[in-house]
């Protein structure tokens, strides 16, 4: 068994995703235990290889660059086929980000290699023979310890759990041709619509300001957005009630069937705290809740609760945060 580890360096729209650096960081830790090397594999339209030095800076000994015009859009079939074929060169493990893209790729590759996958690892330990992961299940209410006994071990790592660590390695570029014709994939991504690219993603933002029905109408979400803007490092989330009503896009939903987040600070605005919602945010480090009903379940888990009208309190809080930020 090879001690080398392959990391899937996710990109989108010609840019490297932060999750790519996290996958390389997680791969580095395994390779160091086993005395192996880390190779990062990077797909994209011609020119994507320019990102190789950043992967090297985070611990990739070499960067396998696969460029093709048909990788301008996500192309999961060709990516998975190419990774699976490249794994034949001998790797002990493949690490993918547990992002929407990474969780699409990992099981495809694992099945091609006839091995299992452990998804969404929040912690990971390796010895010479196996990898053991901590995997949150049951909507985050149970932590499962799982051991992969198959080789190679395929793992996806939850964004935010393996923070990118600088660890300069050679990052030597090796060009690889895709397997088959990527333009002939059966699954075709015809368009990727990015919203506001300056907007922080819920999985990456250190602060999340989230709104619920207590905001009374969709237009009042501007108050939530203004508070997020005052923080400067905040993303905006929502409850299922609100996304079901079309006030916010479905992708903003935090909860059991939406995104699971654990930012440093979570501010719940006009959110009562249905179990469905708590499942998605209960692991946040600090929780603030603003709600007019003092019996609301959100107050049972909030570190700091304020009882009152969210429409009245939010502008005052926004002004106070702006002032605090300005005074450093």
């Amino acid at each position: 068994m090879s001690n080398n580890v392959l990391a899937f360096a996710e990109s989108r729209g010609g840019d490297l995703r932060r999750a790519a650096l996290e996958a390389v960081t997680a791969a580095r830790a395994i390779a160091d235990v086993r005395g192996g090397a880390v190779h990062a594999i990077l797909f994209g339209a011609p020119g994507i290889g320019a990102h190789a030095p950043r992967l090297g800076a985070h611990g990739a000994d070499s960067v396998i660059v696969v460029e093709h015009a048909a990788f301008a859009q996500n192309n999961p079939e060709a990516v998975a086929a190419t990774i699976a074929a490249h794994m034949g060169r001998g790797y002990g493990a493949l690490i993918c980000p547990a992002s929407a893209t990474g969780k699409d790729i990992a099981p495809r590759v694992a099945a091609k290699l006839q091995v299992p996958v452990a998804s969404d690892a929040v912690a990971m330990t390796a010895n010479a023979a196996s990898i053991t992961v901590t995997h949150p299940g049951y909507t985050g209410k149970i932590l499962q310890t799982l051991t992969l006994t198959a080789t190679p071990a395929v793992v996806s790592v939850r964004p935010g759990s393996f923070l990118p660590k600088e660890n300069a390695k050679a990052g030597a570029v090796e060009v690889l041709a895709p397997v088959g014709d990527p333009a002939a994939s059966r699954v075709k991504v015809t368009e990727t619509a990015t919203g506001n690219t300056a907007k922080l993603d819920l999985g990456e933002a250190p602060v999340i300001i989230s709104g619920g029905r207590g905001l009374k109408e969709a237009a009042n979400f501007t108050l939530v957005e203004e508070l997020a803007a005052a923080f400067g490092n905040a993303a905006v989330g929502a409850t299922r009630a609100v996304t079901d009503d079309g006030w916010r896009p479905h992708a903003d939903q935090i909860g059991q069937t939406g995104r699971l987040v654990s930012p440093d600070l979570y501010i719940a605005c006009g959110i009562s705290g249905a179990i469905q919602h708590l499942a998605g945010m209960r692991t946040s480090k600090t929780i603030v809740a603003i709600n007019k009903d003092k019996e609301a379940p959100i107050f049972k888990i909030a570190d700091y609760g304020i009882v009152g009208d969210v429409l009245e309190i939010l502008p005052v809080l926004t002004a106070a945060v702006k002032q605090a930020k300005a005074s450093g």
Binding site: P116, V117, A118, T132, P136, G140, K141, I142, L143, Q144, T145, L146, T147, L148, T149, A150, R282, T283, I287, A289, K294, I298, F299, K300, I301, A302, D303, Y304, G305, I306, V307, G308, D309, E312, I313
Partner: peptide, 21 residues
């Protein structure tokens, strides 16, 4: 892929209301 153990995550400390309005 073998399940070695299950554990409950650490409990959050009880919530605290700091005031009104």
């Amino acid at each position: 892929l073998v399940l070695d153990a299950m554990a409950l995550p650490p409990e959050r400390s009880a919530g605290r209301i700091i005031g009104e309005g």
